[in-house]
Nucleic acid binder design. Structure first.
Length: 486
RNA sequence: GGCGGCAUAGCCAAGUGGUAAGGCAGAGGUCUGCAAAACCUCCAUUCUCCGGUUCGAAUCCGGAUGCCGCCUCCA
């Protein structure tokens, strides 16, 4: 497998430290608000990475943290009038609800910062002992950036450039403006822990350094997160971990691109962020997942509801075909000795292996979805033909296509729901979005059936026109009328 | 200002040296009493522009233009 490594700025062959095993650490959320689509993208990208690595036979240890002590959480606790642990707990639970619906697998370990204060203090003490950090008289501890010669390598910056932008805030006792906090002395009414340097709380960067090495041996095979984390968070993590451990920290750095709205970054200050809870009432979570995976993970992704609607149509098509294939394989036709045309069989073969090549190439999920549609098209070509469904090897072809869709879907976390159930849910969502009253539709359809029984086609057609005006189309099938949104 | 990324059909999007995947929309068709749905077929001689390297470039190099990100908390 090839992975784009942020630190070398190119695709590299992925070779884990230990054959067959992968250690993966991804920066999780700071639990102070509901998740937006950007969080969803990061979660989905690394979820697919884990799923695919496991599919490919690796034994993956996946750790993702929760930051549950932080300025933003403290501010939120004042706003909401509850203590900061309660704030964190509330948004961690919300995170689970939102991410479970997106079919995100739970990591193997999900440490919370407050559970590892002692681990952090241990790393900080080591850094002090080795001369990479210092405590100030008032009880802060800072990392001495200039003591770490490689500082800036991950983010492609040099110390002199950074120097020009850095400032010492009033009241800080840094030796150098570049130095960053490992431990912050307690302020009144803030959560605080006892430490060798007095009451205080950890800085943000140290928690990932402490928790990653608590659960996995250094160097980690893969460390992931959003692109904005490269500087300063990952740069600082790297400096801390290498300085403290004496080992390399991470072999492959992976960073996902941003979700944007109208080509601008989604952010609180621009007021253009969209939470998962804004989307879920209108679109099925799997539609969002499909939308996110239809773009390469490193590219910026422009979010729009129009884009979601397109994704919905594509996903519907896959499920529709899957459903048809399932009913076909449930009661297979007897083969009549004749085989499918060789080119069809060959195309199925090709598409069946192609998706894996795509994911092997730096997790190209968009290309993998292309393979899924190739299979869909092939399946439909056979299904719609007069003779082919009866071919001797048709059953085998259907089976191959379904199995591939299943495997590909397993790696992407898609297409795994019951087809009929999905299509039914989808129709309900689309009806709600169009403001269509489902019970009224059912009633009109019943009336129309009544009219048709009486051969009153004029009346039946008039009801159908009415339904069309509501945005509903009716199909008359051998099993009775079936409706859907226009 | 410093560093980095991106520019592919009406829209979305893959493609890192060998002659443009896929999706949506659109057009034709199959099916159908008529419809609808579903399905099939078609749909970029060309990849922002200008140079260069090469037998060959969307892909590599140089330049221009435009958009975006990071440099402060951020997935």
């Amino acid at each position: 497998m090839k992975i784009y490594n942020s630190i070398s700025r190119r695709k590299e062959e992925f070779i884990p430290k230990e054959p067959g095993k992968v250690s993966l650490y991804v920066c999780g959320i700071t639990a102070y608000d509901y998740c937006h689509i950007g969080h969803a993208r990061a979660a989905v990208v690394f979820d697919v990475l884990v799923r695919y690595l496991r599919y490919a036979g690796y034994q993956v240890t996946f750790v993702r943290n929760f930051t549950d002590v932080d300025d933003k959480i403290i501010n939120r606790s004042r706003e909401e009038g509850i203590d900061s642990q309660a704030v964190a707990e509330k948004y961690i639970q919300a995170f689970y609800e939102d991410m479970d619906r997106l079919n995100i697998l739970r990591p193997d370990h999900e440490p919370r910062a407050t559970e590892h204060i002692l681990d952090m203090q241990e790393v900080i003490q080591t850094l002090i002992d080795k001369g990479y950090a210092y405590a100030t008289p008032s009880g802060d501890v800072y990392f001495r950036v200039r003591s770490f010669p490689e500082y800036g390598r991950l983010s492609g910056r040099n110390i002199e450039e950074l120097q020009s932008g850095a400032r010492i805030e009033p009241g800080q006792e840094k030796e150098d403006p570049l130095d960053f906090a490992l431990w912050k002395k307690a302020k009144p009414d803030e959560p605080a822990w006892a430490s060798p340097w007095g009451q205080g709380r950890p800085g943000w960067h140290i928690e990932c350094s402490a928790m990653s090495q608590r659960f996995m041996d250094l160097p980690l095979d893969i460390h992931g997160g959003g692109q904005d984390l490269i500087f300063p968070h990952h740069e600082n993590e790297r400096a801390q971990s290498i300085a403290a451990s004496g080992h390399d920290f991470v072999r492959y750095w992976m960073h996902n691109g941003f979700v944007q709205v109208k080509s601008e970054k989604m952010s609180k200050s621009l007021g253009n962020f969209v939470t998962l809870r804004d989307i879920y009432p209108h679109f099925l979570p799997e539609v969002l997942r499909f939308f996110l995976l239809s773009h390469h993970y490193r590219s910026p992704l422009d979010f729009s509801f129009e884009g979601l609607q397109e994704a919905e149509k594509g996903l519907k098509r896959v499920y529709q075909t899957k459903k048809n294939l399932e009913s076909m394989t449930a009661s297979p036709a007897k083969g009549k000795g004749q085989n499918l045309p060789a080119d069809i069989t060959q195309e199925i073969q090709e598409a069946s292996s192609q998706w894996q090549n795509s994911l092997e190439d730096d997790l190209n999920t968009a290309a993998a979805l292309g393979s899924a549609f190739s299979l869909v098209r092939l399946a439909n070509r056979i299904l719609e033909d007069k003779q082919w469904p009866k071919a001797a090897d048709a059953g085998q072809a259907f089976h191959n296509i379904l199995t591939t869709l299943q495997n590909l879907g397993q790696a992407l976390g898609l297409f795994s729901q019951n087809s009929s159930g999905f299509l039914h849910d989808l129709r309900s969502f689309r009806a709600a979005r169009a403001g269509v009253d489902t019970s009224q539709v059912e009633k009109l359809i019943a009336e129309r059936q009544e009219a048709r029984k009486k051969k009153d086609f004029a009346q039946a057609d008039s009801i159908r026109d009415h339904l069309i005006q509501l945005g509903v189309s009716v199909q008359d099938t051998p099993d009775g009328p079936v409706w859907d949104l226009e």
